[in-house]
Amino acid sequence: MSEAVQHYQFIKTFFQEYGCPIVEDNSGRLVIQLTDEMDEALMNRPFYWHYIKKMGRQGDPMSLTLITDPSLREEKGEYIHSGAPRLRQFYQYLLENNKYTKLYETVNHSPIHAPMIPWLVVNVKVHYFGKQKKDETHSVGLNLIHGTILSPAMEKLENIEFEPTISDYTFPMTPLIKVASGYRRILRFIEEHIEAQDKTWVQETLVAREKERKLIEAFFTDKDNEAERRQLEKELEDLMGRFTPRVTIEVINGGMFYLTQETANTMISHEKTALKRT
């Protein structure tokens, strides 16, 4: 799928999810009527909304024209490309507002009272800070009954239907593992993964830091000069900030997922065959 098509679909789903009508859709150019909520979130006009609310008036939300098809770039509208600030804004908004969930797999016809098995799914971004940076996303699932770990989890769940309410004739099982301790298990799993990585970058960072430190000290030699001494301290502090090898685990989002026994089984068995293969 081309990048333009990906952006197009992403934007369309995004606004549908947030209840904004798509007024015009010329596959590649979208005109979106914003709701009050989304106007306030995206259009950066706090004074307008402050005033409207104070006066108790009806707001007049704007519409947004977004172009994803490069061949339509000449038309009026905001062109969306990788790295476009508008796209980042959507990402940011999504990440800020969708941290937690609790979902039940949709079961259409259950012959008996079927138990739903609780899973904890946590998605994280691992940032590696050396003299350069990189990051990884991980999606880890943990069965809260018997502690099986599944990774990647989101890719497995992607095409399953979930709802915020439990389907008829099914019941949720009570977790044997508490969510908080389940989360700690998942963190340990990720840390093991980090430990197992190649560590040359750590050494390289320390060598580069030492080299840089010597260079800085060669330029700020006058220790008696108060201003110069302070600047040296500041430079060294910056250096430590930039060149101290470290890893941070940042949570993207996470939630409780209740799966049928059947789904849970297929996921785990896939996992086992996947493990055997590697």
Partner: peptide
């Protein structure tokens, strides 16, 4: 504070 499945996926 619970989000929908679609939004959860989009954020990821």
């Amino acid at each position: 504070s619970i989000c929908s499945w679609e939004k959860f996926k989009l954020a990821y």
